[in-house]
Design a protein around this nucleic acid. Structure first.
Lengths: 244, 244
DNA sequence: CCAAAAGTGTTGTTGATACACCCATGT
DNA sequence: ACATGGGTGTATCAACAACACTTTTGG
């Protein structure tokens, strides 16, 4: 799911401009890529293969072509790395400190994206040497102001996740209630009561129970659920609350 | 109060860069200026005195100097018009549609600001012919994509006002509970119960009751309150909920 | 005295919180 | 049998919504 044009009404956009024409100077795109691995919220960092920052870790970034919007540029850059074109993507804001890049005046538009690790498939890219998942507790020094962008995105994610069920984008299509709970615990940095979480989330009627159970677990298999976008849509129109 | 660097922790920034050096091409700033007049949420629109859009209504906008951040540019532009330098200001996002300005490729960074009408004092400005308050129900056609920016800011305001007590910036320093209630009713487009609103807002302990009453009203005078930034700070650290 | 807004009180209902407890399954 | 997580039930308390009611003040 791709959310671009509005805060509360994600829409699916898959237009990806790939014809490369003239680049625009002085403006770039940087993207914080989140995923969730069992118990940990993680971020994909890349080692840049170009420019003054060769070999250093940073966010996935890129430049803007004259005839594309920054939203589209972000989608394009993500597509080049992940081959995914149906991603939850939201703009954070413009980062514009005149000294954020020492050598020249460049402003950047920050994005963040939530993706399910299982769908993710890294693709060789000519601007990137290596890409690696880092736990958010374990982020190295980053180039430019990427630490600030990352911190901002984290704060934004923590707020956002309380108001809209965007967290689902980090999970597989079918998940258990406890997986979902662990996701919220990790993002919000709090502990939740299993029983109360269950009651609350089921009461929202946002989940559809499936006639399927977990496989290959060494304990009682849990029921699988999926997220119901129909019901989500109805709920957003009324406005709703995702506090935990 | 000026909020720039973070979502939830407004800080007061009064640095205003006024030395004019080289302008940056291809990037502009546009600002949605909100105020609240008795019962109506209003927006300040200006008639542009320069460029292709002479005489048309639009948001207050401007350009960026090489050595200032966009945040600072927004503060500077607002200062030129209102002589206010202690304003609640928050970046919305970058608007980047390649066709948003027909003649050339310009991206703009949108801001919104909340100010108390009584403090506001319009100043002649060389880029602006006239400035006028419009009720949000009564906005004319605007230049470029300013309608989109305005709609985005409204949606953002409606969300934001539910999570942080930013609405206070639209009121005089001393206000009555019913003024505050009317503000929420207008912004959120809902009706509130007087008694319940009272209980809820007082229960938050965010307001300080003053030993003062309304003057010159033809009915029982209401007690005046003010907003307590100390307590607000403590509350934001814990995270809190402003739903109505 | 009446209009208009300020301000208080009451009650039923809902939701949050903190538990204790039983169930199913693989080792 | 026991460890591990899945899943249910319940008692208590706080918050919310709807509404009736009283108070103060100017005209």
């Amino acid at each position: 799911m791709t959310s671009l044009s509005s805060e509360n009404n994600p829409e699916t956009t898959t237009i990806i401009t790939r014809g490369s024409k003239s680049l625009i100077d002085g403006i770039s795109i940087d993207c914080v890529i989140f995923s969730f691995d069992k118990k940990n919220l993680e971020v994909l960092l890349v080692q840049h293969a170009e420019g003054a920052s060769i070999g250093k870790w940073g966010l996935l970034g890129g430049n803007l072509y004259l005839e594309e919007s920054v939203d589209n540029a972000a989608l394009r850059i993500l597509y080049e790395l992940t081959s995914l074109d149906n991603i939850y993507l939201e703009q954070l804001k413009a980062f514009t400190d005149p000294d954020r890049v020492k050598s020249e005046r460049v402003i950047t538009v920050g994005y963040y994206t939530l993706l399910n690790r299982e769908d993710y498939n890294i693709q060789a890219s000519n601007s990137v040497i290596e890409a690696k998942w880092y736990k958010i507790k374990d982020i190295p020094d980053l180039i430019f102001d990427h630490t600030e962008i990352l911190n901002f995105s984290l704060m934004h994610l923590r707020n956002r996740v309380r108001q809209a069920p965007i967290g689902f984008n980090l999970l597989p299509e079918k998940f258990t209630l406890l997986q979902l709970m662990h996701l919220y615990e990790e993002i919000l940095g709090i502990e939740l009561d299993k029983s109360n979480f269950r009651r609350k989330i089921l009461h929202m009627k946002l989940l559809v129970g499936l006639d399927e159970k977990q496989q290959d677990v060494s304990h009682r298999a849990a029921k699988l659920y999926k997220f119901d976008p129909e019901i989500y849509k109805k709920l957003t129109e009324k406005g709703f609350n995702f506090e935990f």
